[in-house]
Write a protein that binds this DNA or RNA. Sequence first.
DNA 1: TGTACATCAGTGAACGCGCGTTCACTGATGTAC
DNA 2: TGTACATCAGTGAACGCGCGTTCACTGATGTAC
Lengths: 223, 223
Amino acid sequence: MPIEATLQPTRESALVDQNGRVLGPRALNTRRRLLDSTSQLLRSSGFRELSVVDVAKSAGTSPATFYQYFRDINDAIYELAREAMASHEPTIEIIDQTWVGEAGLVTARKIIEAFVDLWERYGHVLRARDQLAAEGHERFVALRFDALRPILFHLSDQITGAQESRDVPAEIHPITAAAAMTAILERLVGAYPYLEQLGATRDHLVETCSLILYRTVTGRNAS
Amino acid sequence: MPIEATLQPTRESALVDQNGRVLGPRALNTRRRLLDSTSQLLRSSGFRELSVVDVAKSAGTSPATFYQYFRDINDAIYELAREAMASHEPTIEIIDQTWVGEAGLVTARKIIEAFVDLWERYGHVLRARDQLAAEGHERFVALRFDALRPILFHLSDQITGAQESRDVPAEIHPITAAAAMTAILERLVGAYPYLEQLGATRDHLVETCSLILYRTVTGRNAS
DNA sequence: TGTACATCAGTGAACGCGCGTTCACTGATGTAC
DNA sequence: TGTACATCAGTGAACGCGCGTTCACTGATGTAC
């Protein structure tokens, strides 16, 4: 049952091209521009329309150059998703903070805020990641899982604890409940623009989700 | 703020081709095969790889025929998503059943079951729908919204009622909480295969989500 | 019942286009002395 | 400081392929008499 991390640690300094050559500063910059263009086109034109030719053009370089740094277009998406995930790491630490009483609600709120931020910035990349994962591309399944695992297990542990003190009913399956919370985080927040049409503000979103999260994790109502 | 339904009622009998001609039985059958092939390829090869040529080939007909019935490949996906949605309509009635006491938990369970079923059968189509909606294709945004609206408002009304009897805290924004529940329904259930790796069964899924749904809608713990 | 004609439905074959991909080459940058 | 050379980085131009799309045509089905 233990599922190992599949993300090997990538130090920026170790970046190599498709032939295994270490990248110098100039190459690093080119690679960066290619990734930025990929991200930008993914946002503006959509996943299905994304092409190597367009990305290269938009980065002011040539398709041949693209292939020096990436195997294919999915490879570039993969790198972007990793970056999004890395920028999300601090969230994992929030979850270790206390869940007791009023402070627990603050913890919940911080997590929700972090997810709202993440999806506002990287929603287009994360959606592509999830689409590819849903279609069964192994690397993306693993990537998604690595991103979720820490938060999943932390929440799950909290819930198990709350079950021991009888605050959460025994019928709740901790991992599943934790996954339900991440579903809210990922999905609701990703679909949030259309909630605005229904009169929900960002504050409503954060506050309501925080209460649901706090309640589910601790079994208690916010005082 | 009221957002009108954008789905015009389509009776099977009124189906027409791209030139406006009413379809006879033979044509209806061809159209059906094209839709089935689209669905099947969407499931097996993924959204990005889907092409008119492949669909026609797989349906045992020619691309020219495809264009007699659909404007483009998205048009076929749109029809499939409508069908998925139509098959889901009975769920909307479940939600009108009582939310009081033990029976309320049964209601919650039925809804979760309905969603699990829906996503097991049409997940590949719904994911494509959501991807296109997320990319801003208006028809798909509307379609998705029409599918969710009834359940969203019904749940929201329940929550508002529970707030009046002080079972649910006033800080909860009913529509947002309802949307959070649909997020669980759509997302968790869609991503359910990977929960199995973590030891969650379908029963865990249904039971845990039911409890969360019941709790969020009524504000009460299942007795 | 048979034949002629109208309409319905499907398609072969072609078009152009743009994409993914590669290779041999050029230009840029760094370094030894 | 200048020159020669090594290595790094980028690309022009081409290839083939398969896709979306269309049109003029053929074949299938229904109907009138």
